[in-house]
Nucleic acid binder design. Structure first.
Lengths: 202, 202
DNA sequence: GTCTATATGGCGATAGAC
DNA sequence: GTCTATCGCCATATAGAC
């Protein structure tokens, strides 16, 4: 496939992403990253000068992926309930493919909230678009829903089982990997149903 | 109130709890803890021998608090819907009083999952009790609900806005502290309503 | 028990040969 | 560009006076 010739920079970035996601900034070691990339520690510094700068490169990339590219879905003409279903489907796919991503993001946001604000601007993420739709009327509901709470419900229901996986595994599934994988795969349907019920009138 | 005479050990534990909760194990420094306690660094080692041992003491204590003492509620004769309301009320009170607790727990669980399993036994936390009630029938619902998904929904809806507070603050509330505090105080009612709707028939 | 001073090791970062 | 060797700092931990 002619892909064998990876550049050194790409090797380092792949290694750094893996190590930072697993251990976080404080837990990661430049030596780990060099080992993972199969190169020397000095070379990592040669390409990225400092741990901080390398981390920033990874964080920026990962941050962009944390909020999936679903603007097309959100602002399309699809019915609201169908939008929810599509969003949950895409988001849980992403979480399944990147299980360490949410806990990494949440931890680093606490460690350095200023950086998040700064990076939000770089990625062009625009909260204003959402705020513009804060209160939405759905046919058949008694009163308008607060979109902020709805979004938090949506994200919480999707993300929580992934960030809490280690403890759920121990407490609810006797450390059975297959059982928890099965459980997580059921989340799409569960979350969608809960969210749709949540916007119906009592 | 005659409480001024705190023992040195208590001073250290209080300081360690604060620092570990804020920074995590990797980010915390023994010097920070000593400073916070107003004593010397060597004294911390004199009482707890190592950072690891001090951390274990804190983690055990904090872990016990993460799953609130609501067994009485859960296994009482109160109607199921009222149980939900009481649980959410207590849990969100706890999260409000200890905002760093969930992100700390989740991060450390990822860093060292074995320790969690080990500590679960020490605390006497018994998942079996829950598993015994895995599927529950509520009057007026079409089919039995899976209690595991219900518990995950419950915890996710309560916990997520607290662990994601830094980013929510930036993205949805323009970094306005009052606004996000108000938002969080509304979660009790929102979460209770969503959960109750979730167990009703479609 | 509590302190100051110090040992010991690890990690980020750089120097310099190739 | 890539390596080996090493510097300098900082963090955990201990020694030893009081």
């Amino acid at each position: 496939m002619a892909e064998e010739e990876k550049t050194t920079e790409k090797l380092i970035l792949d290694a750094a992403r893996k190590v930072f996601l697993e251990k976080g900034f404080d837990g990661a070691r430049m030596q780990n990253i060099a080992d993972e990339a199969g190169i020397n520690k000095a070379l990592v510094h040669y390409y990225f000068r400092s741990k901080e700068k390398l981390f920033d490169a990874i964080f920026l990339e990962v941050f962009s992926g944390f909020f999936p590219k679903v603007s097309e879905i959100m602002f399309s003409d699809i019915a609201f309930e169908k939008k929810i279903e599509l969003f949950v489907d895409k988001y849980i796919d992403m979480l399944t493919a990147n299980p360490f991503l949410p806990i990494f993001m949440l931890h680093e946001m606490h460690r350095n909230p200023e950086k998040v604000v700064q990076l939000m601007k770089k990625t062009g993420l625009n909260p204003g678009k959402f705020i513009g739709q804060l209160v939405i009327n759905i046919p058949g509901q008694s009163e308008p829903i607060d979109m902020r709470h709805f979004i938090v419900n949506l994200l919480g229901l999707c993300v929580f089982p992934f960030v809490a996986r280690p403890i759920l595994k121990g407490m609810l599934f006797n450390n059975d990997d297959k059982e928890i994988a099965k459980f997580l795969s059921q989340r799409k349907a569960i979350v969608t149903e809960v969210l749709i019920k949540s916007i119906k009138a009592k």
